[in-house]
Design a protein around this nucleic acid. Structure first.
Lengths: 107, 107
DNA sequence: CTTTGATGCAACCCCAAGGTTGCATATTGC
DNA sequence: GCAATATGCAACCTTGGGGTTGCATCAAAG
């Protein structure tokens, strides 16, 4: 079900851009096409199309034909699954820290 | 306590690089200095120093002097708190999707 | 069938980011 | 004090990514 660590890094790279977040939040208020998004955001339609491509590549977004336009939709599931993986990693490292701290205090 | 969305994006940008992940995982096996890391990873010490700087800037890592060297340590807490924020956002979007799906099915 | 609105493709610009080398500057150990 | 090791700083190179403009293409609406 879940992807490898390479894809994990890809998701983070995709989320590490302000413009893409503005696209995601705009999509959060309802599905939209690249052209529609270009009307609301201060970037060209082609720039948005590229961003949508990278978002789709990492599974953060979904496309579906609707007449002559392509409507995009946010996939929250990818966010939550990524969050879960991130939480597990952080918890492991945090556990290590606590263990070391306990050892240090017992000296 | 938690930071703004700008810092959130910064954390993701920091996590969107393979080399930084290799640094983080290396640090996960025990605190280390930039020079020590340079011995284990296939990049120069200066490159690692830059990465450590960006990791520290977003609070993913911590530095402490130990004699003449600077030892770095992973802060899992930043990961877990980021994961929590990510999960909330994903959950909201997922809820929206489900709501729309219900409406569509009721037609 | 022609027009119109939408997407696809390509060339191009610019800059930040990852990486390197070289040298200066501490700080420990003897 | 002197040698050795670690960090700090700076210049520099190169690539990729974000952005733009221009044009081709395609499908719906008249």
């Amino acid at each position: 079900m879940s992807q490898g660590s390479a894809e994990l890094v890809g998701v983070f790279a995709a989320l590490g851009d302000e413009t893409r977040w503005s696209i995601l939040t705009a999509l959060g208020e309802g599905d939209a096409s690249a052209s529609a998004l270009a009307g609301r955001l201060p970037v060209s339609r082609q720039a948005i199309a590229k961003h949508l491509a990278t978002l789709e590549r990492v599974g953060l977004v979904d496309r579906v034909r609707a007449g002559r336009e392509l409507r995009y939709r946010v996939l929250g599931s990818q966010l939550t699954s990524t969050a879960r993986r991130l939480d597990r990693i952080g918890a492991e490292w945090e556990a290590r820290l606590q263990a070391i701290k306990r050892i240090a205090e017992s000296l």
